[in-house]
Design a protein around this nucleic acid. Structure first.
Lengths: 203, 203
DNA sequence: GACGAATTCTATAGATCTATAGATTATTTA
DNA sequence: TAAATAATCTATAGATCTATAGAATTCGTC
């Protein structure tokens, strides 16, 4: 009885997820305002009006896409942060995870980055919370590297975290636009550059 | 006689520039597709239809805004690149110039970064050329720093240039969104971080 | 002040686009 | 298989929005 109901619900939920993914793909390609609900429906192979069986509005679709994008991203960060590795290894893992999210065609992440500000402020609270959490966890990794004596003690942890996130997003866009780029090479170079900078380091 | 003609022409050209700047401001705030020609006209204090006295189409406005944004940016880079300073000083000047462009409410630059891909490919040739020129000049500065022995000889100059541009754009967005940020502090930290990275450097 | 040119306005045609309502088809369940 | 439920479709109201045409106004020059 209740299993029957769940089956139906599950089907609906699965279709709904497909709709959100289609929206992510279309928003990533055309931007929120540049994309129409017809585009999303076409991506799903249904008619424009039918889409509203799964979403209440185009704006709700954007919200769901943003949540989808950042949830994965934050949950991966959580598991890295709580793992038993050196700060250096964690840092490498963070960069890998961040860039892999882009490469795995996780269009939702690009949409979160580029389009979330088109949501009304009232709807951005949860996104903001998750984004701050991500940055805080990254800052803790950096701080533990400083405490362990691996990193300079005079760096501004918040500044470095924001810069690293900026770099990862920037290279994430490159990775999406230029599929021939080797992701692991980019990860390697980012990590090396974050750590060593431009000048020769005494070893 | 011809001075009369020029006066008139100049007035028109000056108004046209104002229109492009208004478009830049509106596109920066709402995105290309999210902004309407009415918004641009309102920013100028004229009616929607009147705008077409100065632009042929909304798309042309986007093109002009992008050109405006990147031209300044490239010309400043040119003068830095050809100046007689050390590579280190040039690098600092580049970062300053880049971030100052954002702070000076040069919305055109933000629009160039975020919206230029909505132009049809045929119209992006010149933008691409200017963007490549910018990066090439930055790479030359980096290379001269390597040649002078100031920087590590094993860095990938193209990679570092792209990364630096990504960082500057990322902080540029922060500077636009958070007016309370101290630009010179950001410049300082970016430059320090570019050069030294996370680990203590032997001096 | 009068003429011509430049600028701005009003009005609108013609394309969108979102969201909804109700009919239709497909799928489950009994 | 018949009834109930879910998924999709068609059609459309009501808001846009872009670009144009032609009228009205302002400006510069003589």
């Amino acid at each position: 009885m209740s299993s029957v109901t769940n089956l139906k619900t599950d089907k609906y939920e699965s279709n709904r997820r497909d709709a959100i993914r289609a929206a992510a793909s279309v928003f990533a390609a055309k931007g929120y305002h540049g994309a129409s609900t017809s585009d999303i429906a076409a991506e799903l192979g249904i008619k424009q009006g039918s889409l509203y069986h799964y979403i209440k509005s185009k704006e709700e679709a954007l919200y769901e896409v943003c949540i989808l994008g950042i949830e994965d991203y934050v949950s991966r960060m959580k598991s890295i942060a709580s793992s038993r590795q050196s700060p250096e290894a964690k840092l490498l893992a963070v960069v890998t995870s961040h860039l892999a999210s882009y490469r795995e065609k996780n269009e939702a992440m690009k949409v979160h980055n580029d389009e979330r500000l088109y949501l009304p402020k009232e709807r951005r609270g949860e996104l903001k919370r998750l984004g701050s959490l991500y940055r805080t966890l990254l800052e803790e990794i950096l701080q533990s590297g400083i405490d362990a004596g691996s990193y300079r003690s005079d760096i501004d942890v918040e500044f470095v975290a924001k810069t690293m996130i900026g770099v990862c997003n920037s290279w994430g866009h490159h990775l999406v636009r230029y599929p021939e780029l080797d992701m692991f090479e980019v990860v390697q170079k980012c990590a090396d550059y974050f750590v060593h900078g431009l000048v020769e380091t005494a070893r």
